[in-house]
Design a protein around this nucleic acid. Structure first.
Lengths: 150, 150
DNA sequence: CTTCATGCAAACTGTTTGCAGAGAC
DNA sequence: GTCTCTGCAAACAGTTTGCATGAAG
């Protein structure tokens, strides 16, 4: 997690790919650097609204799409029809998610990650070859019931 | 995979929980037993329409929700805002998914499953205890580019 | 000064809900 | 006969698009 130069990385990444650096893009990225949550587009929008009421929800969506395409952020879904966003893999330690089927709470965990990486590297190599599939990343979800919902 | 008695299982499962056995419910389940694909609600609807034009899309959604709650089918999403459905774990061998980020193609794989189960059982035990989380199942997704999209 | 990014309103899409009639048990 | 299930139409929510204006480089 190289948080110090996250913004520099972001700016150079954005410009390198021909995109322009604008306030909405800075803000969306900034919101995601300041939380460990997995935010909805609307939540990011509402947060930004507080200080920048001039930035619209449409722009948030367009920005999230670009940032996700570049890989600066991760987009994922837990099955409720909404997309959630978190900081990209380059800025956050490798981790996975536990999801409560009842309240939708998401818990990050990083336990066993080293073992997991070793194991998945082996699988990836095999799958890539056997299914002629170029694997870029993987995700693990555990589903169940969280403590307060039991 | 006990396909022979899948329908018996389904019927008893449904009735045991106080639901009624109806044609739409039979049909939805049947469509999913007859494919290895991961169908959208609309695809299931269109398939059923061919022989039963009287069954509506709303009913498909309501049926899918019930069957998923009971565990007769699995619901999952790959990030395009739509839900996909496949036969439940009891009727299908344990497997996971590779998803092409370009065309959305989904490939099932069952390789390394035994090793994986051993590994994940250990993780589950640890996570359950440490995060006070009752884990019911897990999912693994590999993302990348499929052969024909390369 | 050119080109890309933005905001607004309107469109779109998958899914859900209200309600009266039909069907399961 | 009771109570659940269904189909239809309408509502809903998240997301996307068209277009004229504004800002980045």
């Amino acid at each position: 997690m190289k948080k110090n130069n996250a913004f520099l990385d972001m700016e150079s990444q954005i410009k390198k790919l021909g995109y322009r650096m604008t306030k909405p893009r800075q803000m969306v990225f900034k919101v995601l650097t300041k939380t460990t949550e997995h935010l909805l587009a609307k939540e990011i929008y509402l947060d930004i609204q507080k200080k920048h009421p001039d930035i619209g929800l449409t722009t948030i969506y367009r920005t999230l799409e670009i940032l996700a395409k570049i890989g600066l952020i991760n987009k994922f879904c837990i099955g409720d029809g909404q997309s959630r966003y978190e900081l990209g893999w380059d800025f956050k330690e490798h981790h996975h998610h536990m999801i409560c089927r009842n309240c939708g709470k998401i818990i990050d965990y990083k336990d066993f990650i080293n073992e997991e990486i070793t194991f998945f590297n082996r699988i990836e190599k095999f799958l890539s070859k056997n299914y002629k599939f170029a694997i870029s990343n993987h995700e693990v979800f555990f589903y169940g019931t969280c403590d307060s919902c039991k």
